[in-house]
């Protein structure tokens, strides 16, 4: 029980202190830029718990989910393909290094031009940025598959889909998930940016709209929404990662202890 209390204190202590400090600092402030905690909470509820949730938040999240899902599927598929063939890897490596190094945001104007301003463009923008960490990490993971494990598969004639399912994918999974983790934040960033460009709905648009209209508490509440989405993503990721990589964490713990 005392352990539980201590953990709770650790969990909430600093956030509470910070909020208190914020409350105290804004208690009789007339600062236009910083709302009080109470103001922010009421604005948050008023702004986002209503039609805006269905019109702006959900579609944004939907596009993000679609983009990330596509990025994961394509990234892993191509990553495995490229990682499995040395010649293919050598052929594409410099090209991929270059494409990866292009800051994904600059592709937004490009894709607007090629696709137009619509949902597809926004999803493609997310995919075009989020796919690279997954793809390159998958390539690396497949490439670095243990030699003895490969020999084991070869001697027991574990081939084709079986090999993919029981050796390649699980062996690369720690790397793949490390890539996915990077992709989540890139995807979120691109979701926002794709909506800031010539869009008329979505979270990114709404937040910029608030700022242009000097609706400062609303703007802050929008930042909070983005923060919560980011937090939600990272929590979901962590749960999924723990499940998929239970063996990996167990193995690492054993290796560390020895």
């Amino acid at each position: 029980m005392s352990a539980f209390l201590r953990n709770t204190a650790f969990l909430l202590g600093l956030p509470l202190l910070l909020v208190l400090w914020w409350w105290w600092a804004t208690i009789d402030s007339t600062n236009f830029f910083v709302p009080t905690p109470g103001e922010l909470v009421t604005t948050f509820v008023d702004t986002w718990f209503g039609p805006r949730f269905w019109q702006d938040v959900l579609p944004s999240i939907g596009r993000l989910a679609a983009g990330l899902a596509l990025a994961i599927v394509l990234g892993v598929a191509f990553g495995i393909l490229i990682g499995s063939f040395k010649r293919l890897r050598q052929l594409l490596e410099p090209l991929l290094e270059f494409i990866r190094a292009v800051p994904p945001v600059v592709l937004v104007p490009l894709l607007m031009l090629l696709i137009g301003i619509n949902d597809l463009m926004k999803v493609v923008v997310i995919v075009s940025g989020a796919i690279w960490p997954i793809l390159l990490n998958t390539v690396e993971g497949v490439r670095a598959t243990d030699e003895v494990q490969r020999d084991t598969c070869a001697t027991y004639r574990i081939r084709g889909l079986n090999r993919l399912r029981y050796l390649t994918l699980p062996a690369a999974s720690p790397q793949i998930l490390a890539g996915v983790r990077q992709s989540l934040s890139i995807g979120l960033i691109l979701m926002v940016i794709s909506e800031m460009f010539g869009s008329s709905s979505g979270l990114g648009f709404t937040i910029v709209w608030f700022q242009r209209n000097f609706a400062i508490p609303e703007m802050w509440s929008g930042i909070l929404v983005l923060g919560l989405i980011g937090l939600g993503l990272s929590v979901i990721f962590r749960v999924v990662e723990r499940r998929i990589l239970r063996w990996y964490h167990g193995l690492r713990e054993v290796q560390r202890a020895s």
Binding site: D146, V148, Q149, T152, Y166, P170, A171, W247, G250, L251
Partner: peptide
């Protein structure tokens, strides 16, 4: 069938 020296690497840790 082959039994390798590196048992830790020959068994699949994810199974």
């Amino acid at each position: 069938a082959v039994v390798f020296q590196e048992y830790g690497r020959s068994l699949f840790p994810w199974m």
